[in-house]
Design a binder for these strands. Structure first.
Lengths: 361, 361
DNA sequence: CACAAGATTTGGATCGATCAAATACCCCGA
DNA sequence: TCGGGGTATTTGATCGATCCAAATCTTGTG
């Protein structure tokens, strides 16, 4: 029935020129108040919305943010990224942007994908995930002056770009400190093999809490590939020790699950060993594992905020690359760590600032 | 340094008109072979790629497919949809399309989002997920003649649109049949409350296998809200029966986890009760639960295929709405169902056509 | 009352592609 | 030689917005 309204049709309706309508939307301060309200009314009545494609053609901006997806994301890490993606979609929507997906397996493929997509689309910016040592994407984007923000620190390189990340070390330090306060002394850490950035970071938090408390870490730190199998194998090794640990902090929920599972099958149920995971995945929820949750929607909105700083610099805001480091929060469940379960001494660990109970998010 | 090549610049380079270059890309059969190859060479040399925004402005097609995301997707169901999304992104990329995300909580919000996005973007089509009884989205889209495909059947309404779905009943029927062949007689089903389409479908498969085998289902069918807690409570109830079941089929991995967990804590480990979940989530993998996996990347490519039938109808293909129903496949793990674990009689259940071992996908 | 400075508004060109119609070219039969 | 019927290629208009420069209207001032 009714044709899509255009700038011209609205202009005719309001008895002004196209440019005036355009200004009503993009530079209202240029219009006389009376004209402005008349045009706004016309826009309202006709339900006019500018067509992105046309605007994009002229301005070479698209209000689109590109995000590369790993095609076969591994289950657990995939969970975190997918939740982040949901948050990002929402945050972008709030700012008038949309998320454009493309798939890319591995750095070089992702760079090819950037190249490909930039050749045909006017993407305004990119959001990177899963940064790692030797990441080539950031340099590539930076060289070309393309705006981007990464969810994940630039491990290794001191790249001067904006990023948002979650402070894994702070999380493990906090939970370890809680356990210490609850009387635990032999607290193990089951993490990934060295060199993974994220994993090293999470391990550091545990280590610093232990050494700060003047406790030894020798023999308490195990490294396994991610997965329940790794966790079980680590737990076996821990049990073989002369004095097994009384609590275990893990770099992931999968490891935590494995550790928990094996301990539970082996130990007498009388003296539960708190096991703490990371990422608060559905696995943790289902099994009632305590876990450190990343504030993913917050991370996503921070990413979007930093992007907007780059894309639409405000006069008062410095358009410098900025960094945001968010603290994870502890989700305490049945197999609790911290104030809930105590090994012997019921000294209540003082509640941490960012602690929630029950199902996260 | 170098400006982006345009149709005009390539045309100048190849000493032909713009239109000829355009034809080389969109209607090569119109060109003289010599001209064609000359133009193609020019395109190659200049790395020319047509700008989507410009093309879109003229043709009002964008090569974009819209997908609405539930902002706070619940963990497990979220897993399935996210994997589907990854697959869709990849499938779309293969066909020269991209996925555009927008967030929408609930049907009416999603419809608003359609309206909003269509007012400003030239989306070519939508892909819907999580269809359910009383879904208002399909009718809305159909009324407006917008091309779309849903991942999920139109429950309740016999809407004449294209869809792709996974045959849950076939999956539970198959696994139940396997268990029967392995000698089980009392096979329970733990599902969701009636009325959820997907859940009813999964239950039907179990039920039909049981009644086909002439076995009673009374007292063997339990309904619980999704989640491990529901599973545990169901398992408790099952154990209270005079003759507890020897195997349990569940509507989801969360339920299966709960059932498995409680059974394992309660029963003597000598006579394991096979527990089967659905969706093959990381939970199942981590715990070694047998589960029915949805072929999500296949579902995604089928969606894309149906979309392409709608968007770029081939002369030989009828552009009728089409339906695709894919069979899930059984991923057998330690707590196996079917041929692996037998209750007493080692009658080997004949291998199902679509059975894989170990970690899926 | 004329005139410059500033505030508003306008018309035309433009972004980069495709559409539609016009033109150039070619072979063949009347 | 002229015209018909293809085939091959080019020209000009157009999609719907913004950019730019110029036109018009206000207002204050000498």
């Amino acid at each position: 029935m009714s044709e899509r309204p255009t700038l011209a049709s609205v202009a005719a309706y309001a008895r002004v020129s196209r440019q005036t309508v355009s200004n009503a939307l993009n530079a209202p301060h240029l219009l006389h108040p009376d004209t402005l309200s008349r045009v706004q009314q016309a826009i309202e009545r006709t339900h006019y919305r500018p067509l992105r494609a046309a605007r994009s053609l002229r301005t070479s901006r698209s209000q689109l943010v590109g995000v590369g997806l790993q095609p076969a994301g591994d289950g657990v890490n995939g969970y975190v990224l997918d939740r982040f993606l949901h948050g990002l979609t929402e945050a972008a929507g709030g700012a008038g942007y949309h998320v454009l997906l493309f798939s890319a397996a591995g750095d070089s493929k992702e760079i090819e994908a950037y190249d490909d997509i930039l050749a045909t689309q006017n993407l305004d910016a990119f959001v990177l995930t899963s940064t790692h040592y030797g990441d080539r994407r950031t340099a590539w984007l930076a060289e070309r002056g393309l705006p981007f923000v990464s969810f994940g620190r630039p491990w290794g390189t001191a790249a001067p770009h904006s990023w948002v990340d979650v402070d894994g070390a702070a999380g493990t330090r906090e939970v370890t400190t809680n356990l210490l306060a609850a009387g635990h002394r032999r607290i193990a850490f089951v993490g990934w093999p060295d060199g993974s950035g994220v994993g090293d970071d999470r391990r550091d938090g545990w280590e610093s809490a232990m050494t700060t408390a003047g406790l030894p870490t020798a023999g308490l730190r195990l490294q396994r590939e991610d997965g329940a199998a790794g966790g079980r194998s680590a737990a076996e090794e821990l049990l073989r020790a002369a004095e097994p640990p009384t609590a275990v902090v893990c770099a992931s929920d999968s490891l935590a699950l494995g550790v928990f599972d094996l301990l539970e099958r082996t130990r007498r149920p009388a003296d539960p060993v708190p096991v703490v995971g990371f990422d608060d995945t559905p696995v943790a929820d289902a099994l009632g594992l305590t876990s450190l949750a990343q504030p993913l929607s917050e991370a996503a909105s921070e990413c979007m905020r930093l992007l907007l700083d780059l894309l639409e610099p405000q006069p008062d805001t410095a358009a410098q690359p900025a960094h945001v480091l968010l603290a994870p929060h502890l989700v305490v469940r049945a197999t609790g760590a911290g104030p809930v379960t105590t090994p012997a001494d019921p000294a209540t660990g003082k509640g941490s600032t960012s602690m929630t109970k029950g199902t996260a998010q």
